[in-house]
């Protein structure tokens, strides 16, 4: 995982299952989303205690509407690859991190993937921020708590936060965080800052 180009390289073939301790009582999940090549798999790999795994979901959708040029109402099937990792938080609880494609054509999967998620980390590559607009809009529509995570590639331009916030059109309550997804420590700090934000927001909601 040395170069930005490896960001979406296939996760390694599983070497063999690494089981959770039998004391674990359940799992939570956080989605890591963003456009192709933004570094989702790299971030998941930096955080995961297991070699990131890849699984596939088949998405069947009636090809109605704009995509249906045939008029036959055929169904289309698309395969979506999800790379994911795991962190055993304590003897009772595990956290899964699911790299989730952000492009609009994968949205039929989102309801299922996002159900029960603590939140989502929306990765942005500032060299091509426009590719993240779709996914940011989707997260707002679905009311999934999220943070923007700028993946700091070596040639990532820097902008004042207000300029960035305005360019990405995200609300003031959405944190904008920075991280080199190849770096384990920075990736952990990003995840901790995000969960800390979720925690503080939940405390605010409890107040009358």
């Amino acid at each position: 995982m040395a170069s930005a180009n490896s960001a979406e390289a296939p996760a390694s073939r599983p070497s063999g299952p690494q089981y959770l301790p039998s004391s674990v009582q359940g799992a939570v999940k956080i989605l890591v989303t963003g456009p192709f090549g933004v570094g989702k798999t790299t971030l998941v790999g930096s955080l995961s205690e297991i070699t990131p795994l890849r699984t596939e979901e088949t998405m069947t959708a009636a090809s109605s509407g704009v995509d249906d040029l045939t008029g036959r109402g055929d169904k289309t099937t698309t395969t979506v690859a999800l790379d994911f990792g795991r962190i055993t938080l304590n003897s009772r609880l595990a956290l899964y991190l699911f790299g989730t494609p952000g492009q609009q054509r994968f949205w039929p999967l989102w309801d299922d993937l996002s159900r029960g998620a603590l939140g989502a980390i929306a990765m942005v590559d500032l060299r091509r921020p426009d590719e993240s607009f779709d996914v940011l809009g989707r997260l707002e529509e679905q009311r999934i708590p999220f943070a923007v995570a700028v993946n700091t590639f070596p040639d990532t331009p820097s902008y004042p936060e207000e300029e960035l916030r305005s360019a990405l059109d995200v609300l003031p309550e959405v944190p904008i965080l920075y991280c080199d997804a190849r770096d384990r420590r920075q990736s952990y700090d990003l995840l901790i800052d995000f969960v800390d934000h979720l925690h503080r927001s939940s405390l605010l909601e409890l107040q009358p």
């Binding site: 939570v28 962190i87 938080l89 304590n90 609880l93 956290l95 603590l118 952990y188 995840l191 901790i192 969960v195 800390d196 979720l198 925690h199 939940s202 405390l203 409890l206």
Partner: peptide
């Protein structure tokens, strides 16, 4: 809130 706190504590320890 309790759950998020548990996740946070776990991550900080790791």
């Amino acid at each position: 809130t309790t759950l998020l706190e548990e996740v946070l504590v776990g991550l900080r320890q790791l």
